[in-house]
Each structure stands twice: as structure tokens, then as C-alpha cells.
């Protein structure tokens, strides 16, 4: 008990000049204080995560982003699935899955799917690349701020993992109808989903915004 009170006392003296921050969940005000490596700070009212100090966050995210971009290219170049029935063969690319609705007379749906599984994921990967490089090399951050803001807004609309579930459902559905060929893009696609999920988990938005805000102007 004694030690905790004492620590609180020191903290309150030291942080008089520290910048105020607010919990994104409930609005509770806190004062920012740097964390030891590997530690996290949580809101004292609602317990939501405020910020973290991950070792090597920037380098891991950079590695994952570069891997993700490579997998993204592979996924778009190679066929995802193939179907063989009575001598005829059909192949499906990622873009083909988006355009299927176009051929059926639903251009709006085709546009939505292209955004969900191609444009927004690519935008996210490129933004991560720009943001990480900007922080690492202390570039002027106005472009990175603009991109990161929109990436955060578009985040729910990139639906690679939902599409992955759709692919699995389709594979099971077709399995007993015809001979199904699993294409190379299927595997790179699975890798892409994992890579992007890992990058999202590792990235601490608070630290990114703080670093970008300092380099601004």
C-alpha cells in the first residue's frame, strides 16, 4: 500500500508538465508518461487500452508490410480457384471474383467488392509503408498523417478475412459437385490475411499519431 501511494505521489509531481490525453473509449483524462519496454497503459476508468510500448514496433510492422505487399502481388497474379467439369475448365482470379457481379448486371456490387478485397487492402499496405518510413527517417509527416487518417476510417471496409471465409464456404459447397483446383493465390491469400492481421495487432495507433504529430510542420 505504502509503495503504491508513494509511486502515485512521484508520478503526480513528475507529470505536471506532461501532455494531457483522453481515453478514446470513455473520454477520461490522463497524463501521458513514457512506458518501459513491453508495458501497456490502460484507462483508469473503463480499462480500455491507451497506449503500448512494443519493442521494435516500427521494424516489425515494416517487415510485415513488405511481406504483405509481395503476397498481395502474388495473390492478384495467380488464380485463386479452378473448377473442372466434363473436360471444361474455369479459373477464378481475385479480380475475376470482383467482376463476376459486373457480368451479371450488378456494377454497384462489383465496385463494392473491388473496394473490399483489392483497393482498401492495398491502400492499407501502402499507407503502413509510408507511415513507418516517415517515422523512421523523420520525414515531414503531412502526407503520412493524411493517409493514416483515411486508412483508419476505411479500416472496417477492407474485408480480406471475410472474403477468406467466403472462399472456404465456396470450396466446401463445390467440393462434391466437381473437381476443384486450389490455385497458388489461395495460399498467398491466406498468408496475406495473416500478415495484415499481425501488422494490425502490432501497430499501436497512439504511438504512431504521437510520432507523426511531432514531425508535423
Amino acid at each position: 500500500m505504502q509503495t503504491i501511494l508513494y509511486a502515485d505521489l512521484i508520478a503526480s509531481f513528475m507529470s505536471v508538465s506532461a501532455e494531457p490525453i483522453a481515453c478514446q473509449e470513455c473520454g477520461q483524462l490522463h497524463r501521458y508518461s513514457p512506458l518501459a519496454l513491453g508495458k501497456t497503459a490502460n484507462c483508469r476508468r473503463c480499462g480500455a487500452l491507451l497506449y503500448r510500448n512494443r519493442p521494435d514496433m516500427l521494424d516489425s510492422v515494416l517487415a510485415l508490410t513488405l511481406a504483405g505487399l509481395t503476397l498481395f502481388v502474388l495473390t492478384n497474379v495467380f488464380p485463386l480457384l479452378g473448377l473442372r467439369a466434363q473436360g471444361a475448365e474455369q479459373e477464378l482470379h481475385l479480380l475475376g471474383a470482383s467482376l463476376a457481379f459486373w457480368d451479371q448486371g450488378y456494377p454497384l456490387l462489383a465496385g463494392l467488392i473491388i473496394l473490399n478485397i483489392i483497393i482498401f487492402p492495398l491502400f492499407e499496405l501502402l499507407t503502413l509503408l509510408v507511415v513507418v518510413l516517415t517515422i523512421r527517417y523523420h520525414w515531414r509527416s503531412s502526407t503520412a498523417i493524411f493517409l493514416f487518417r483515411w486508412m483508419r476510417e476505411f479500416k472496417p471496409w477492407g474485408m480480406l478475412e471475410v472474403f477468406m471465409l467466403g472462399v472456404l464456404v465456396a470450396v466446401v459447397k463445390l467440393g462434391d459437385l466437381a473437381t476443384l483446383i486450389v490455385g497458388a493465390a489461395f495460399w498467398s491469400f491466406a498468408g496475406l490475411v495473416l500478415t495484415m492481421a499481425a501488422a494490425t495487432t502490432l501497430l499501436d495507433p497512439f504511438s504512431v499519431w504521437r510520432a507523426l504529430g511531432k514531425n508535423n510542420g
Binding site: L92, A97, S98, A100, I113, M159, F163, G166, A170
Partner: peptide
Amino acid sequence: VFVIAILTGLV
């Protein structure tokens, strides 16, 4: 919606 897109594209 994705399942429909994949099925119509493939079959």
C-alpha cells in the same frame, strides 16, 4: 455476398 461472387465467377 462474397460466396455468390465466387460461385458466379467460377461456375
